[in-house]
Simulated assay, not measured.
Amino acid sequence: MIKPREKTPDLKINLVNGSTWELSDQNPDNFTLVLFYRGKHCPVCKMQLEELENKLSEFKERGINVLAVSANTEDLAKETYEEWNIKNIPLGYGLPIEEARAWGLFISEAISDKEPEHFFEPGLFLIDKDQKVYWESIQSMPFGRPSFKDVINGIDYILKQGYPARGEA
């Protein structure tokens, strides 16, 4: 587990648009939001990423870069991109399970033939300009994820009040 105020592992990931995204290359005005999602098999992920698509301009207005990433194969990620309403979200794929563990994500095994053999459960990380964790939310189940409305309200408070990252002790 990475505690708040600790530096994250670097993250270098291929995107469905053919480019590569690297966390250490990000230069946001305020934060980078990395959303780890279970994969194409997950209807809750579809709802979450489509909610993110609808709120993307609000994140950009606050100086926040966004990435969504799964362990899915390139083909599954491209299908996800085409079938879900997420055309403006940088969508990464192929994150190795070992790297997901380094982020503190929970790993699940398939319980049906619709799921990949192994995949990670959801995680949301707000990362500061120094690549340190500012806020994280990690789930062991697909349910109970924070709404992006609540995340945006929290970011507004953080930016207005200069509220520090918490949970570091």
Results as ranks from 00 to 15, higher is better:
V66Y: 02
S19Y: 09
L49P: 02
L33Q: 11
Y157A: 14
M141K: 15
P122Q: 00
D130Y: 01
F119R: 01
C45N: 06
G162I: 02
I127R: 02
E79C: 02
K7H: 14
R62G: 05
S70Y: 04
S140Q: 12
P146F: 08
R166C: 11
E115H: 06
R5T: 14
E58M: 10
K3P: 11
Y93I: 01
A77E: 10
V69T: 09
I158K: 12
W135N: 07
V16R: 00
W84D: 10
K132M: 10
T32F: 05
Y81N: 13
A102S: 14
T8Q: 07
D25A: 15
F59L: 06
L56I: 07
T8C: 12
L23W: 05
P122S: 06
E74D: 12
I107P: 04
P164I: 11
Y37A: 02
V151F: 08
F148R: 02
E61A: 13
N30H: 15
Y134S: 07
A77D: 00
E83Y: 11
V151P: 05
Y157V: 13
K40H: 12
P28E: 01
Q48M: 00
C45T: 00
K60R: 15
K12P: 03
F106I: 04
M1T: 15
L124H: 12
L23D: 03
K3H: 14
P90G: 08
K55A: 06
S112W: 04
R145Y: 05
L49V: 00
D113L: 13
P43W: 02
S24P: 10
S112I: 05
G123D: 06
N65R: 13
G123L: 02
L52F: 01
Y37P: 01
S112R: 01
E83I: 12
L124M: 13
K160C: 08
T8W: 03
D75C: 03
T20A: 01
W84P: 11
A165L: 09
S147D: 07
K129R: 15
D75W: 10
H41S: 00
L11Q: 07
I111D: 12
K160H: 10
T8S: 10
E53R: 03
G104A: 08
I111S: 13
D25C: 13
S112N: 00
D128R: 04
R166S: 14
G167Q: 10
K87N: 09
A100Q: 00
E99D: 14
L105K: 03
L91K: 05
M1I: 14
E136R: 15
L76W: 10
G39K: 07
G92F: 09
N88E: 09
Y81I: 08
A110S: 11
N72E: 01
L49M: 07
A165Y: 05
S70H: 07
W135A: 11
W21E: 04
S57E: 15
Y134L: 09
H118D: 09
A71F: 02
S19R: 12
E98Y: 08
R62N: 08
L11P: 03
G63V: 08
I86R: 08
P116G: 00
Q48V: 11
D156W: 09
I152R: 03
L91I: 09
K87T: 10
A110Y: 06
Y157S: 13
D150A: 15
E121L: 14
C42F: 02
Y81A: 12
V34E: 06
S147Q: 07
